[in-house]
Design a protein around this nucleic acid. Sequence first.
DNA 1: CACCGTTCTTAACCCTGTTTAAGGCGCCGG
DNA 2: CCGGCGCCTTAAACAGGGTTAAGAACGGTG
Lengths: 192, 192
Amino acid sequence: MAVIAEQLSKVLGLPVRQLEPLLALAAEVKLPKGDFFTRPGERADRFAIVLEGLVRHYYVDARGKESVKAFRGPLEVSGPYAELISGRPSRTFIQALAPARLLCLQWEVLQRAADASPELSKMLRRFAEAQFVNKEQREYEFLQLTAEERYLQFCRERKEHLGHVPLHQIASYIGITPVALSRIRARLARKR
Amino acid sequence: MAVIAEQLSKVLGLPVRQLEPLLALAAEVKLPKGDFFTRPGERADRFAIVLEGLVRHYYVDARGKESVKAFRGPLEVSGPYAELISGRPSRTFIQALAPARLLCLQWEVLQRAADASPELSKMLRRFAEAQFVNKEQREYEFLQLTAEERYLQFCRERKEHLGHVPLHQIASYIGITPVALSRIRARLARKR
DNA sequence: CACCGTTCTTAACCCTGTTTAAGGCGCCGG
DNA sequence: CCGGCGCCTTAAACAGGGTTAAGAACGGTG
């Protein structure tokens, strides 16, 4: 546990002594492959840090189409962040793609802690800002890159997931169908 | 000026007495139609609130293709937010589409003020969170909606801009070419 | 082992958006 | 008043992803 605190301290840019009282309130959740951390309709009240394994965030629209918003591995944050912020009921699935261990905390607990600690409050602000920058990067990719370029970008940025995530979910993440991704991969293989 | 402080107070959810010392440090900038508030390469160090007029945020990729990230009207925030956060040099143009007045502030000044004021710090956090929710909504639209649906969404959400923004910029905002938007509009007109 | 579900690929056809080019319209400056 | 420019639309040829369907490869299970 002390090891975790130290790693988190680095990732979050927060001193260990600020982290410890929070970790004491956190619960470890084991998620077998295929199980869900959150589902739409549930009240969104917890978020988590992935200790081990891999989860994906996705939603399903009225036509039944799945869209993957994110993959999150060890030491990354998972949870229905937008819904936690806005207080709206969750519309996102969070599912384990590999057996996962999550360290999870009530959102409310974190909010109260932030009211008492300027450092924690600042950390939450930096976190929100970092999430924003992430999404803006994604907007950039949809506006300016072709599907093939988005795929190559994914391979570069998230190569640690390449063997572990089924291709049709990568296709969904970059906004195309599995068939189209297959075609792109064939084209790339031919060229190189 | 007192009127502005009151409106801003509502928009930002911050008491007027917190706002006043900041407004005293802000500068008003007049921007004739077509002029730029920021350009790529410049150091990103200011942000602003639109008092009057209309600006667009966009970037241009290596192939020369423009992509519009946002339109911002009165009482909305403008500025190279992602670059201010990350400290990277700006890659976004911010241009007046109509003669604009901006109330603008050095980012650094705001940061220092936030260190001294927990309320202001919290406001900045809520602001970052709201920006994140915005971008996630946009991600949702790219992943799940067709171009036609994105156009209709735009018409619903931002009807105040409809007469004032050229259609080819709306096309760029929703991620298609002007030609494609023109066809969509023709199809919609025929159906209704 | 045979069976099943999942994943990935390929092919055919269709639909939508891109590209390029042309023409109309409105507006501004000379 | 005319010329030019920006904006919008339309057309035609093309490219690229969507849809559907079929089949191969794999892994797990009865």
